[in-house]
Write a protein that binds this DNA or RNA. Structure first.
Length: 558
RNA sequence: GUGCCCGUAGCUCAACCGGAUAGAGCACCAGCCUUCUAAGCUGGGGGUUGCUGGUUCGAUUCCAGUCGGGCACACCA
């Protein structure tokens, strides 16, 4: 009696049983149980009969009848009907649905957690910005989507590690170092001698000032003090990177995003991992020398042309340390790795996978997974703000948090399919902040909190409420929506699509708001009152659980 | 020119791995507050799912082509 039944899988098993009896030759048929859009089509529907019609050369309705006759008895099933071209519609008993209230209240923060991941390790890398400037909107999208994805995977039973990879080596860092050094010497981007590739943002001057003042920068894993020596390039480099890492860390913390592991590209070099990987690749026979450079034959693994590993100047191209880095991840025991990145980096996918395949370490072909989010364009005063790090003109993540708020920004960036381009209209987000869907959801939670506060009774009493009186159409809708929640988590995790949680919450909030306007909760009849309060307390719990996955607060008052 | 992503209501977006009459919000029109929060609710108008073919009981979804938008195509990160 305690656990809420997973109706979907329960019915899938029932139909599998019926299938074995009716058509033993076709037990391999996929059994799909879905939720019909219309209430008149029942709570769950199965299309098995239509699938079998052709191979069995019988009419779908005849097959449907046979299947229904072969269904094992179930005390949660009210009735089964055949409709349309041969859909089998299943109606669940009210009593079984009402059980979800107790299920939610008992499981509380754990309601919605499923075991699809079975405790397996998954490493999720996201943001991974170069430490060459503040985080901008694009990083914000990566942070919001990545963090939410991690939360969803965690809820789906995976053992999640959040990881940030700093590209603190290479040409961009050289440019950064040079820019800071020039600023230290009093050269500004307006001077004719300012290099084309130099960073022009004002923050470079801040770094220079701090360096000259011999400030100490403390970040999550190190402490660096500026020497103030304008000719000590190594010292400037260390200081600039540490300074900007600290800024990024602060931005992320303000955004409510925290990481378990920070990996540094530079460490791969100093620890010899890059060199070791190169040697392994050479030994694998997939490399060759040409025109003074070392190439990896990535065309052996589906790339359209081979890629240079070591340039004529002796330096490695970007993907080489990236391959070394992913080999490390593999060795750290991640059966699954997901990299959340901007779609402008998609060309690395083939190279990294090719490099890993060439290593011949038994790494699966499609490893690692990637979630790519499309570009974010920012609209301000009706005009597109061009993002250019070098020009120093861009909207920082911090700007957005300050202007729009953390909750709204996170919701806005995470509530869309990563594959679609996103226009962030700052004026709209600010001026219409009351119409932001995140408030709609939070408002539902706040309303419930107020009602429960006015009631003032013991929450524990709600566990024993007689939920059998919950039978209005509004109540049925809310019950069914809550029953759907664990399935939403499972699907969102499977599809690596955290935005589905956001849409679900909007629908649950809508069901509640309709219910709220149509009925009263603090009524005289004690039995009805407790039942309704138990129901909305459960709604509040699900809203809270879902908002937590999005990294959005669930306020008691608004 | 090549590869990847996208194209759904005026605008911003959904659609449960191919299902039943394609759904929300914003905007527009008409209603609902002496009773738990009107940041809410109820109703209405608005669609050839870019276009053309194909696959099948059935296509927004899969395939081919085509048009449009974005991104990537360096010994760049």
């Amino acid at each position: 009696m305690s656990a809420v039944l997973n109706f979907k899988s329960h019915l899938a098993e029932s139909f599998a049983h019926a299938l074995r009896e009716v058509a033993p030759d076709f037990v391999g048929a996929t059994i799909l149980i879905e939720r019909p859009k219309q209430a008149s089509h029942g709570d769950y529907a199965c299309n098995l009969a239509m699938q079998l019609a052709k191979p069995l050369r019988k009419s779908p309705r005849d097959i449907a009848n046979a299947l229904i006759a072969a269904l094992p008895k179930s005390d949660v099933v009210e009735k089964v009907e055949i409709a349309g071209a041969g859909f089998i519609n299943v109606f669940i008993t009210k009593a079984a649905k009402q059980e979800v209230v107790r299920g939610v209240l008992q499981a509380a923060a754990n309601y919605g957690r499923v075991n699809a991941g079975a405790g397996k390790k998954v490493g999720v890398e996201f943001v991974s910005a170069n430490p060459t400037g503040p985080l901008h909107v694009g990083h914000g999208r990566g942070a919001a989507v990545g963090d939410c994805l991690c939360s969803v995977l965690d809820a789906a039973g995976w053992d999640v590690t959040r990881e940030f990879y700093y590209n603190d080596a290479g040409v961009q860092i050289d440019n950064l170092t040079l820019s800071v050094q020039l600023r230290c010497k009093g050269v500004t981007p307006d001077d004719a001698s300012w290099p084309e590739s130099g960073y022009r943002g004002d923050y470079i001057a801040d770094v220079a000032r701090a360096y000259l003042a011999k400030e100490t920068v403390v970040s999550s894993d190190q402490s660096t003090t500026g020497s103030g020596d304008v000719d000590d390039v190594e010292s400037i480099r260390h200081f600039a990177v540490a300074y900007l890492r600290r800024e990024q860390d602060l931005d992320l913390r303000a955004f409510g995003v925290e990481f378990d592991v920070f990996s540094l590209e530079s460490a791969l070099y100093t620890e010899g991992k890059v060199e070791a990987t190169v040697q392994k690749l050479i030994a694998s026979g997939h490399t060759y020398e040409q025109e003074g450079a070392l190439w990896l034959r990535t065309t052996d693994f589906g790339d359209d042309k081979d890629r240079v590993m070591r340039k004529t100047d002796g330096g490695y191209t970007y993907f080489v340390p990236d391959v070394a880095y992913h080999l490390e991840k593999w060795k750290r025991g991640f059966v699954r790795v997901i990299n959340e990145q901007g779609s402008d980096h998609h060309s690395t996918i083939t190279r990294v996978r090719a490099g890993l395949q060439a290593l011949d370490e038994g790494i699966p072909k499609g490893w690692p997974d990637y979630v790519l989010h499309q570009m974010v364009t920012v609209l301000k005063n009706g005009e597109e703000v061009k993002i250019s790090k070098r020009a120093g003109s861009y909207v920082t993540l911090r700007d957005l948090i300050d202007e729009v708020g953390c909750d709204a920004t996170r919701y806005f960036l995470a509530a869309r399919h990563p594959d679609s381009q996103l226009v962030f209209d700052i004026d709209l987000a600010k001026s219409q902040s009351n119409d932001n869907p995140v408030y709609y959801i939070q408002y539902a939670h706040a309303r419930i909190s107020t009602v429960l506060a006015q009631w003032g009774g013991e929450r524990a009493a709600l566990l024993h409420a007689d939920v059998s009186v919950l039978d209005s159409e509004y109540e049925s809708a809310v019950l069914q929506r809550m029953i759907d929640y664990p399935q939403v988590i499972e699907t969102a995790a499977e599809d690596l699509a955290p935005h589905q949680v956001a849409f679900y919450l909007k629908e649950l909030a809508a069901d509640f708001h309709s219910y709220y306007n149509a009925s009263r909760f603090l009524v005289d009849d004690e039995k009805i009152k407790l039942a309704r309060l138990a129901l909305i307390a459960a709604v509040a719990q699900v809203l809270k659980n879902g908002l937590a996955l999005l990294g959005v607060s669930a306020p008691e008052k608004m």
